[in-house]
Nucleic acid binder design. Structure first.
Lengths: 292, 292
DNA sequence: GAGGGGTCCGACAACGTTGTCAACCGGTTA
DNA sequence: TAACCGGTTGACAACGTTGTCGGACCCCTC
C-alpha cells in the first residue's frame, strides 16, 4: 500500500521488501515500515500478488459431497497437506452431476489454481485437455477420468476389496449373498460388483443384485423382493458407506449378516458390521501434494 | 487475452465486452471473437478481474473440522448458498486452535474474501476489528465471538436444548443423570452444562459431571469412576455429537440410558438414542448469504 | 583522493482485466 | 449542408503488487 510507504517515508518497493521479508533493508527502516503497517492496518492484497507472480497458492478440490463422511474425511486430509504447503483450499461438491463437476473445474481453472484434485462425476473429461496442456497439475481420486486422458489417478482396489468382503461371508457359511449398490454407471460401484461376482463364481445369482442410487424406499423394496425368493439371501454386501447405512435402516430388525464397503462411524457397535476400509484419504492428499 | 484480440482483429476492450456479455457489440464481431477464444482456448484470468473490480466472489469459511459430521453438514449448506450467489468457498479447519483460526481468518482477509463465516475456536477476536471496520461482512456461527465485538452471530439455543434432554430423562424416571461434555472453555459445552444444571435443580451432583476433550480413555475412566459411586448414574447426557459416539463406545455393553446433543447418523438404530438436533445448518448458510 | 566493493534504496515496467471517455460511421432531421 | 443521433469500437489509465535495474551512499584500500 502506497499509504504505508508515504507514512514511513519510503518507496513502495521498500514496503514490499519488508512485507516479504526480503533482505537488504536496514533494520531501522524495516521497523519504521512495520509500525506504519500496524498503524494503518495494512494487509497485502493477494489478488495483486497473484496477478504479478502467477502462482495463486490455491488448490481446487472437487468432490461428490462434503457431507458424506467418506469425502469429508478426504477433504480434511487434503486440506492438511495443502495448508502445510502454504496454500489454501477451494472446494466444491458436484453432487454427482457431471455438469456441476465441469462448472466447478472450469471456475477453479479460471482462478488459476495451482493444482486440481477431482473426484469425477462424469465420463467425459476432454474439456480438461486444454487445461492439462497449459500445465495445470490434475489428480483424479477415487474414480478414473473418462477415456483418452492421461492423468494421475488415485484408486482403491475395489475389485479385490469386494472379493474379500464376499469371501468373508462365504467363510461364515453364507451361500446366498445379496449385493446392493449404487448405480453401476459409477466406477466404484461397477468395480465392486465385478469383485462380488468374481468371488461368488457359480453361486452368482442375478436376482440378488440391485444397483441404483440409495434411497430407503428403493432399498426396502429390493430387499423385500429378494426375501420372497424361494432361496432368499442370508447375507448382504453393501456397495458403499451410504448404502451400508441405508441397508441397515431398511433391514430394521430382520437379522441378515451385513458387510459394507467403506468404514463408518459406529460400525463396530452394530450387530455384525464387518467393514472393509477402502481408502486412506491422507494417502490421496499426499499424492496431490506431490505437485505443490 | 490480447492474443485473442489480435486474432480476431479487434481491441482488447471488445474481447472484454464479449466475455462479459456486455451489450453494444455487433453480433458478427462477437462471433469472430468467440471463435478466436475457442481456437486459442482462452479463459479469463480471474485474479486480474478481481484486482480490477474489487470483488473476489469468494467466501471464507472457518470451522472446527470438516471431518466432523456436524461441520461437514454445515459446510455443505454454506457451500450451496454461496454457489447460488455465484461465489466460491474457501474453507479451512481450525482444529479448535485459536492460533490456527486466526491464521485462517487473516489469510482469507488478505485474499479479500467478500464475506467470512467463522466458528470461533478462540476467545479473543479483537484482531478482527480492523477487518470489520474495513467493511468485510463477518458472521459467527455456533459460538459467539469474544467480548467487545459487534458481529452477527448464529447460535442454537444450547441451554434450553440441554434442558429438554435432561427433562426427557427425568420423565423416564432417571434421577441420577451424568453429564459428559467437552472442555467448558468451549461455549456450547458451557451452555449445555448450564442447561443441564438448571434442569436438574436440586438433583445436581458435581460428581456426575466430567468435561474435557473427548477421548475414549478419558471417557471410560470418567464413567468407571461415576459407576463406583454409592449412588451411580442410570443415565448419561452427552454434550455433543462426537461425545455421544465416544460415550456409546465407552459404555460398551453397560446399559445406561443415553441422550446426546446433536443428531448423528444411525442414532435411531441404537438402543435408546434420543437426540436433540441443535442447528439447521442451511439456516446458518442463509444468514451468511444475507450478505452476498 | 581516486577507485572498488558492499549495502540500502527508489523509479519504472509489467501482470491481465475493466471503467471512462472519446471517436467513428451510417442514417435522419432541420 | 450542417447538426444530430444511436450503435459500435478503441485508446488509455487504473487496480496493487513485484522483478529489474540502476543510483546513492558508506567504508575501505591503494
Amino acid at each position: 500500500m502506497k499509504d504505508v510507504a508515504s507514512a514511513a517515508g519510503v518507496a513502495l518497493k521498500t514496503v514490499s521488501r519488508v512485507v516479504n521479508g526480503e533482505p537488504g533493508v536496514h533494520p531501522a527502516t524495516a521497523e519504521r515500515v512495520r509500525t506504519a503497517i500496524d498503524r494503518l492496518g495494512y494487509s497485502r492484497n493477494e489478488s495483486a500478488r497473484v496477478l504479478r507472480r502467477g502462482r495463486t497458492a490455491t488448490i481446487g478440490l472437487v468432490i461428490e459431497d462434503v457431507a458424506d463422511p467418506f469425502y469429508s474425511g478426504l477433504s480434511r486430509a487434503v486440506e492438511e497437506v495443502v495448508i502445510d504447503h502454504g496454500c489454501l483450499l477451494l472446494s466444491g461438491s458436484s453432487g454427482e452431476q457431471p455438469g456441476r463437476e465441469r462448472e466447478l473445474v472450469e471456475t477453479f481453472c479460471a482462478r488459476r489454481v495451482d493444482g486440481l484434485i477431482v473426484v469425477p462425476a462424469g465420463e467425459d473429461h476432454t474439456y480438461l485437455r486444454s487445461e492439462l496442456e497449459a500445465g495445470t497439475p490434475v489428480v483424479f481420486a477415487d474414480r478414473p477420468p473418462g477415456a483418452g486422458l492421461d492423468v494421475d489417478t488415485v484408486l482403491a482396489d475395489n475389485v479385490s476389496g469386494a472379493g474379500q468382503a464376499v469371501r468373508h461371508l462365504l467363510g461364515h457359511g453364507h451361500g446366498r449373498i445379496a449385493f446392493l449398490g449404487d448405480d453401476p454407471a459409477i466406477f466404484t460401484a461397477a468395480q465392486r460388483l465385478q469383485g462380488y461376482r468374481a468371488a461368488l463364481g457359480g453361486l452368482y445369482d442375478e436376482r440378488l443384485v440391485a444397483m441404483r442410487p440409495p434411497s430407503l424406499e428403493a432399498v426396502r423394496a429390493d430387499l423385500a423382493r429378494m426375501l420372497t425368493l424361494d432361496d432368499p439371501p442370508t447375507a448382504v454386501f453393501a456397495g458403499n458407506g451410504r448404502y451400508t447405512v441405508t441397508v441397515l435402516r431398511a433391514l430394521a430388525g430382520r437379522r441378515l449378516a451385513l458387510v459394507g464397503f467403506d468404514d463408518f462411524e459406529l460400525a463396530d457397535l452394530l450387530q455384525p458390521g464387518v467393514t472393509v476400509v477402502a481408502q486412506d484419504p491422507s494417502w490421496m492428499g499426499r499424492v496431490a501434494a506431490r505437485r505443490g
